[in-house]
Amino acid sequence: MTDYNERPDSEELSDDERAILSELGESRRKFLGTVSATTFGVLAAQLLAEQEILANYRVPEDAVFAPVAEENAVSVTLNINGTKRALSLDSRVTLLDALREKLGLTGSKKGCDHGQCGSCTVIVDGRRVLSCLTLAATCEGKTVTTIEGLAKGDDLHPMQEAFIKYDGFQCGYCTPGQICSAVAMLDEAKRGQLSYLSENIRGKARAVKLSDDEIRERMSGNLCRCGAYPNIVKAIREVHTGTEVAETWEFVKEGVNDAAV
């Protein structure tokens, strides 16, 4: 039986094999050299070439796929992260697509695009909403805060700091939505808004002190496929209470947990 892992010696290769390997090696080295020296130059040149081809391409007049102007165009002016932006959009454009595709604010993420995951959560007029189910056309005159608008210059928002401190994410895809949601959620708690877990519904609205169960319930519209929930809850709890949350995990001690393994 041949063990391919035990075949390091090129002398055992046939001439053909050696030629292929040599060629591969050379082209790979060439490629790596080019990339390390002029990565951006090469990519930019490619893009420019593509753009040029596209620009010179004439669509036949009878083509059914001829590009058209925005269909059912609507004009919207909104205040995004403190800046007034005027947009002309196809009526179908959601707030999420307007942010990502028209304004270059790609922090808000498109997860499910059906209002089930919460990764597109942004804050509109002080309330967390799903930007994937909000038509941009309905946002005339509204104030939108996205993840890009939470920090003040280089100073991160306390919720952003806390997510980093407690490792409230793994892949990070749901994180902008989680953070926007959490920021608005703590404001809701301050205003005394109810949740499904509220006991005293008939009482007057007053600031709510949130248990971990309450945080989980109020954040249930934001899913995390990596399962960073315990750390997300810790991060939110620290911002909510202003006190540090003790870590509850510890490294496995040698010998102690052997039986369990």
């Binding site: 967390r128 799903l130 109810l194 509220s198 519904i201 519209g221």
Partner: peptide, 29 residues
Amino acid sequence: TANHPLVRENYPLLSQAILAGASEQIRNM
């Protein structure tokens, strides 16, 4: 609706039912 003082005080059943549905993002919309 769920948080309105008149609803909370007189129709807590309605508040509870609304809060049992969807997520806060969706209830805001």
